[in-house]
């Protein structure tokens, strides 16, 4: 008898006939199992902690000094610190969600995922939950250190709404990561270049270091497609309410856009995974290393 069932199967057909409860339990175990290394990595891998705080902090510092050299209002320093914290999540989405299946393939784990009795969405959900927990600690550190060192003052009049916008941003952001995980795998060897392509260009389009309105009409496209840009624009309006910062759209509308994006990206990720599994079974090519 395995730990997964309460009865001994008498034949393979019976063994494969899982109850709904067993399917759910198995998938929840997969979510927890995939989230575990990322959560436990919080304390067991100090080098991750150092690099994931230090690298965004270096970038934040460089942009803070540029604003200081330009004698910009102090609110801009706060924009950069908040943007720097959000880049931690974006980097996590790009390297540890989008590119993850590609790395798993290289390490030989992907074929185990395909053959294990669980849905791949459970693996992606586990990666997202673990990554979110792990990256939150890094982002908080960037905000804490950056705010202390550079004297950022926040004017938060609606803290619960701010927390809600943050959580609402994370859903489409990690949903996008889930979708990209399948797409990166389909695009094969381009994964590394794609991950590179999704950094500076996205920081530029997402208004990570400046108010999103500054890029003019392109901001409209960003608002329609990029959760990082929409979420950051809404969070800046709420975190620096007294600075007179103007968002591209009111916070309520941006929250609605984030909610729609969340649904769209997760459904798209589910469809892309279905296609991926179909290809994996038909061609067997997706589990070949370095393809």
């Amino acid at each position: 008898m395995s730990g997964y069932g309460s009865t001994v199967a008498t034949n393979p057909r019976e063994a494969a006939d899982w109850s709904t409860g067993r399917v759910i339990r198995s998938n929840l175990r997969a979510v927890a199992g995939r989230a575990y290394p990322r959560v436990i990595g919080l304390t067991r891998e100090p080098s991750w902690l150092f690099f994931e705080i230090f690298l965004p902090f270096l970038a934040v510092s460089a942009f803070v000094f540029v604003y200081r050299a330009l004698e910009a209002p102090e609110a801009f320093v706060g924009f950069v610190v908040l943007g720097g914290a959000m880049t931690s999540f974006w980097l996590n989405v790009v390297w540890m969600m989008a590119a993850q299946f590609y790395w798993e393939k290289d390490q030989g784990n992907l074929e185990l995922y395909f053959t294990a009795p669980m849905h791949l969405m459970s693996v992606l959900a586990g990666m997202a939950i673990g990554g979110l927990v792990m990256t939150s600690s890094r982002a908080l550190a960037v905000i804490g250190i950056g705010s202390l060192l550079y004297g950022v003052t926040y004017d938060i009049q609606q803290p619960f709404l701010l927390a809600g916008v943050f959580l609402l941003t994370m859903i489409p952001l990690y949903g996008m990561g889930m979708l990209f995980a399948s797409l990166f795998l389909l695009w094969g060897r381009e994964a590394f270049h794609l991950a590179q392509l999704l950094q500076e260009p996205i920081y530029f389009l997402g208004g990570v270091n400046f108010p999103l309105r500054a890029i003019g009409p392109i901001a409209g496209v960003v608002i329609a497609t990029l959760p990082l840009g929409v979420g950051l624009d809404a969070m800046r309006q709420l975190a620096f309410a007294g600075s007179g910062v103007q968002g591209v759209l009111p916070v309520g509308v941006e929250m609605l856009i984030l909610a729609v994006m969340g649904v769209v990206f997760i459904v798209a990720a589910r469809l892309a995974l279905g296609y991926l599994e179909h290809l994996a079974r038909r061609e067997g090519r997706l589990t070949l290393r370095w393809q």
Partner: peptide
């Protein structure tokens, strides 16, 4: 091309916003 141009673009927009 995209990476270096975007990196420069960020600085240019920051510059334009302030000055």
């Amino acid at each position: 091309m995209a990476k270096p141009l975007a990196a420069a673009g960020i600085l240019v927009v920051m510059f334009q916003v302030i000055t």
